[in-house]
Design a protein around this nucleic acid. Sequence first.
RNA 1: GGUCCCGUAGCUCAGCUGGAUAGAGCAUCUCCCUUCUAAGGAGAGGGUCUUAGGUUCGAAUCCUAACGGGAUCACCA
Length: 639
Amino acid sequence: MSIENQLRSRLITAVKELYNQDINEKQAQVQITRKDLKGDFTIVVFPLLKISKKSPEDTGIEIGEYIKANEESVAAYNIVKGFLNIELAADYWLNLINEIALKDQFGYVEAKEDSPLMMIEYSSPNTNKPLHLGHIRNNLLGYSLSRIATANGNKVVKTNIVNDRGIHICKSMLAWKKWGEGITPESSGKKGDHLVGDFYVKFDKEYKIEIAQIIADKLSDYSAIKDTEDFGALHKSLKAKKKSKEGLNEVEAAQLEACDELAKYAENNAPLILEAREMLRKWEAKDEEVYADWKMMNEWVYAGFDVSYKKLGVDFDKIYYESDTYTVGRDMVLGGLEKGTFNKREDGSVWVDLSDKGLDEKLLLRKDGTSVYMTQDIGTAKLRFDDYDIDKMVYVVGNEQDYHFKVLSLVLDKLGFNWGKDLQHFSYGMVELPQGKMKSREGTVVDADDLVDAMVNTARDMSKELGKLDGYTDEEAEKVYKMIALGALKYFILKVDPRKNMTFNPEESIDFNGNTGPFIQYTHARIQSIFRKAADQGVTVDEQLNTSVAIDEKENNLIKMISNFPNIVAEAGKTYSPAVIANYAYDLAKEYNQFYHDHYILTEEDKDIMQMRFVLSKSVGKTIKNAMFLLGVDVPEKM
RNA sequence: GGUCCCGUAGCUCAGCUGGAUAGAGCAUCUCCCUUCUAAGGAGAGGGUCUUAGGUUCGAAUCCUAACGGGAUCACCA
């Protein structure tokens, strides 16, 4: 039992003994004492005043005396403004740090035979474009969450669902067929995912031209807007005005309706989209030529993704492909249709009615029988639960899909899967740039590969300038540059509460000073440097410290922070938040740097004190390393 | 319009299971490298915690409303 819990139960018995009253957890408040006050743990006595019928001071004294008399590790107490601060015996913390010093995996809980199996889905890319900044947040969160879940004693399976089919894939295929002239990654020297992405963009461009043409041709059919000169501008301004406080007048409402109708008509009747749909139909019918092209282009993309994943340092235990799972989903939908769980409309499309749950009707199969996004998620879920004995399913997917996962959960539940309603949508916020949202059409999307490369370059330049890696081979140094670059990027993204939208400022992200990953990595390297120096000087140091040595406040603070790490890991696991770990690692590094600044270690003459600072430094180094590991960040020996 | 999320220093973010004087970093201004890594440390300025009510001994934190920003409500994924 932790000392905190011991104090809590002492408090409960104290109230029972002193005032003959039982109190609950909420009334028994034990928290860590503010840093600027004397004491280790604080008992808040305010909630107990009604019971004690005494002043905060008197109540504090009575409880303080009781705890001091009955809890061995409590040495003293003080009362400030009605808060009872408990002071532990000096050697309590020193014994604790000796225990910690012996544990390599300090802070982690190992999984047992009967530990729950958690499957975490993340990444889930579309095979029609390369990974960008948004995917980076997803991948880093998913990877970190899986490490945090593992550290909390779960068996974890990292999984990925590759969205390798659907109309969006057909768009890039079609564009490549039409305008690609047989270009390949080899012939162009371009990464496969980028090459395919280019054709997706090309499709969009040509498609837009066709839409504009149709609109121009058909404009005269729509009386409300027939004299419009700039359709796009009108449509946009009407939509904006509808959203604004002002609202639309009758004429404008009619115009907007006409605009919407015409735009929809154009979008659905442009020759390119018709061709793409035909291609999707052929693909689902396994048309030989379409299938061969699809396979080839997908291979290009996978090869590209592999490079990006490796660059980011993430991986998966099991990858599912939508092209394998959508038919399973379709069968399940059809099965549900037979049982009357879903219903078919006259045109042949299949729907689920969720109006009793406060949602609306949702499409599960199109009228032409092809699958939608939801269909494949149903199939994927089925396959996964067939493959693994999953206790908890976590989907790392952006918050723009909150609604989708609400529906998925209910649909799975309707289909009779008891895990349906328990699925966890780990919903994270969007990544924005200082100038606003990323827009692929405006070329403001930050490419994942480019970003990592740029950061490695910055790390290299900076390191060379500082010259801290002299003596390393080029290969060794390059490893460190990469470590620092990724440390900066990962920490920058993971330190923010995942649920919130975040702003990614490229300039700030490559800053290596202050509250950054490299700051924490630097602290680790600094600590390792002490040990190297010690070895050079022939100083031998024991792994344990003398528990009767005197420590000052700073040293005590460090021990307290280290000993709190397991609680932090548990909290991060419970709240699914790498940010909790990131903030802790920063606080610990900062605290250590202050200690380092005004405490000498190797030149300290008192052997016991030197020993204590040495063991302390070692424990800090280890804890930083273990914390950063949970973020997927490695720490260097030198930097 | 319905539903959901967010609003803390000039900027980016902590703090939110109610608790003591609301914290970091960046940016601005001062200091500190002849002893273990200055990618560091110390200090200064900078706040009606969007606003208004409510609950409470106590509210940045919980509740309600307003204002501001975002997401979503497709035979897109």
